[in-house]
Amino acid sequence: MTDDEIKDIEKRTRQYFYEDGFIEIAVGILFLMLGGYFFATVALPATSRIKSWLDASFVLVILAGLFLVGRLVRFLKFRITYPRTGYVAYKKKEATPRRRAAAAVSGGVIGAAFSVLLAVSPSVRAWLPALNGLLIAFACHLFARRADVMRFHILAVVSAVIGLAVALAGIGDIKGISLYYGVFGAAMIVSGIVAFSLYLRRSRTDEEGGHER
């Protein structure tokens, strides 16, 4: 077996988790929900109780969304992917104190930078969709490098373009953010569906010799 063949096996094993497109579909649904959330906070009257509740529960919405994404992906994989092409349990990366600290610091710095920017220059609000798009694009790019999946690089570009387009269209602030998440969420769902149909075409249900796996 050549070195290239071994590297190919390693690459396909790492990529397998993303092959069915379920991650993008689930995260795309989460982004659509976020888009709806931001739209509701802007569309509802300032005196509305629902608006007050929504404003106060942003973190809860994110956490609930992430939880649901995890559950949805797991459900779809167990129902569709694993019976079709097999089950793999990946090694869990240890959440060392150093990793946790790095994640907390970087999240804190980004959040603080946004707050300072908005306080110092309120006109930056007009560029919020573009900034958001670039941030998500950077995250997609990092993810693409880690997962070695080309379509995540494409999603990175799409995110940056959507964010910029919304800002240049003069739709800034929370309305723009809402539109960004709605459109990019839809783009992720489309990407996931395309990946899923390619996955279905490449694979077939194993029916040889009964159900043994």
Partner: peptide
């Protein structure tokens, strides 16, 4: 070699996955 290479990257894998990835019959 294909089987152990796959297993070195994961916690565990089932028979079906190994069969498909290694290109072997049952």
């Amino acid at each position: 070699l294909a089987i152990v290479t796959i297993l070195s990257l994961v916690e565990s894998a089932d028979f079906l996955y190994l069969q498909r990835e290694a290109g072997l019959t049952k």
